[in-house]
Amino acid sequence: MSPAPRDRLAALPRGGPGLARRAWNALVLAGCGAGLALVLLPMIMLVAHIVARGLPGLSLAFFVSMPKPVGEPGGGMANAIVGTMILVGACGLIAVRVGGGTGLYLAEYGRGPFAGAVRYAAELLAGVPSIVVGVAAYGLVVLTIGHFSAIAGAIALAILMLPTIVRSTEEVVRLVPRSYREAALALGAPRWRVVQSVVLPAASAGIVTASMLALARAAGETAPLLLTALGNRFWSVALDQPIASLPVMIFDYARAPYSDWNQQAWTGALVLLLLVTAVSAMLRLAVRRIG
């Protein structure tokens, strides 16, 4: 009978970790915490500044009056706010349909190399810079129509939203319990009916939420609109004419050499921040509570 084999090599040192290991541990952990602070701090400062400088200009007039000419005090961004709503609405109509259809395809029939390629293409599309999408939409729509227009802007925004909607639709539809489908199939419903009248309604809350999130982001996009919807100092709701939008107006007002315009740019930024971030926050919280 041999003794316990561990007696053959010298016993390993006993005791807890030494000072060096403890110090390194503390250093690394503190470093990670500092990293988080460093990431969050500028963001918090940014939000604080936007609120502090934007709030003084926030009034009902900002939402309901038109921009005034240079030198005249007051005025608002009513046309830009309405313009952004029109752009976002039109882009939503396009993107939710195409993106939702693609997402549904991926979730229901999405096996094999073609589906994999579609997913990958959508991911690549998500990485295309928005200004490039603007250039493409310019060539595609603005040159075809012959002038800048709201519809060109909506198409550019729709392209930008597409990947998000494709991906989240697929995820949400996949979450619909298998038993729903099986129950409907077992009742003798054909596949397309099952999808249309059982799967889609069950997934609709999720699809709507995801689309709203994507729309909120689209509402803040600026670069592609510069090349497509252009902007408009006047009231216009026509889809085939240049249209004002909040982000483009903020851009113009921030770069203008007039301090009252700059003030309006701050207020516009605050409105945009509230619009986009508050909508995102509420939707995400709602999703968390459901999920």
């Binding site: 693609t102 549904l104 579609v118």
Partner: peptide, 27 residues
Amino acid sequence: ADPAYRALLTLFAVGVFAVLALIVWEC
């Protein structure tokens, strides 16, 4: 109806490729 439905959804999926291709083409 089933193949038709599937074909319709596939068409949307092809649309994603088309968009990428159009961007390249236009640029």
